[in-house]
Simulated scan of single mutants.
Amino acid sequence: MRHILDRPIWSALDTVHADLAEGSERARRYPPSIVPFAAAADNTPESLEALEDLPEADETMLLVEAGPIAIPPGLVVVSEALAVQMVAERPHERIVDNRIQPLDQSDAEEMLALATLTKPGPFTLRAQSLGPFWGIKTEGRLIAMAGQRLRQTGFAELSGLCTHPEFQRRGLGTLLFRFVAGEIATQGETAYLHAYAINTPAIALYKSLGFRLRCEMNLRIVKRRA
């Protein structure tokens, strides 16, 4: 039996993020202005055909699944990678730290600039549509942030963790990681995350912070075949 996190994009768009979904009961995606994630409900020909119909000619979509990702004939793979999915082994304690503040839409451009600089993963001006974000500022300048991205019933993905290069190695990333994990646990949900399989230092850090490897994940970026 499949775990709800085996197809995390589909299960998010079929549950907590259903109000953001574009598509049908066969294939869905987030609005590209929020995040380029998409998924088919399963690997039946009908679902794969529906997935093929989702993108416009100039759009790419990112697919993430625990098993092999079936690609319909009308789509072509632009790039692919192996990732890992990690899940909190226990609920994290809630942290109170006056350096951490909630971010809102007025911070969106600065958040995008920080994400563009540090590359934590796909990020847009509308990232906060997926879940709350928090940050640390110095003299009004955003220097570190983290938040929630994919959400399913009982689960929330810790994502967008990044620190400006000038302020790294000061424990800010670890602090925000523990803070967001604590906020997720306070909601009664289990925190999880994704990391590239080759990023062994990050994986080791996440293990030290109470996360375990659940499974390997396949990642493919696709677009319409010319």
Results as ranks from 00 to 15, higher is better:
residue 208 S to L: 02
residue 190 T to S: 08
residue 165 P to V: 05
residue 199 N to P: 00
residue 157 E to F: 12
residue 178 R to N: 15
residue 163 T to G: 02
residue 192 Y to E: 04
residue 199 N to H: 11
residue 149 R to I: 03
residue 143 I to T: 05
residue 147 G to S: 14
residue 212 R to P: 00
residue 205 L to W: 06
residue 197 A to P: 00
residue 180 V to I: 15
residue 149 R to Q: 11
residue 195 A to M: 01
residue 154 G to C: 02
residue 198 I to E: 07
residue 169 R to E: 01
residue 169 R to T: 07
residue 179 F to D: 12
residue 168 Q to V: 07
residue 146 A to P: 01
residue 154 G to R: 13
residue 153 T to R: 11
residue 139 E to H: 14
residue 169 R to W: 03
residue 202 A to H: 09
residue 138 T to P: 00
residue 180 V to H: 14
residue 169 R to G: 01
residue 140 G to Q: 09
residue 211 F to Y: 09
residue 165 P to G: 03
residue 165 P to E: 02
residue 141 R to N: 03
residue 145 M to A: 13
residue 200 T to A: 04
residue 200 T to S: 01
residue 210 G to N: 05
residue 147 G to P: 05
residue 175 L to R: 15
residue 178 R to C: 12
residue 169 R to N: 12
residue 184 I to N: 10
residue 137 K to N: 02
residue 205 L to M: 04
residue 133 F to W: 13
residue 210 G to D: 03
residue 147 G to D: 05
residue 165 P to D: 00
residue 144 A to V: 10
residue 204 A to L: 09
residue 189 E to D: 11
residue 191 A to E: 08
residue 144 A to T: 14
residue 160 G to F: 07
residue 213 L to Q: 07
residue 211 F to C: 04
residue 181 A to T: 13
residue 201 P to R: 12
residue 143 I to S: 02
residue 140 G to F: 03
residue 196 Y to M: 10
residue 196 Y to V: 06
residue 145 M to T: 13
residue 154 G to P: 05
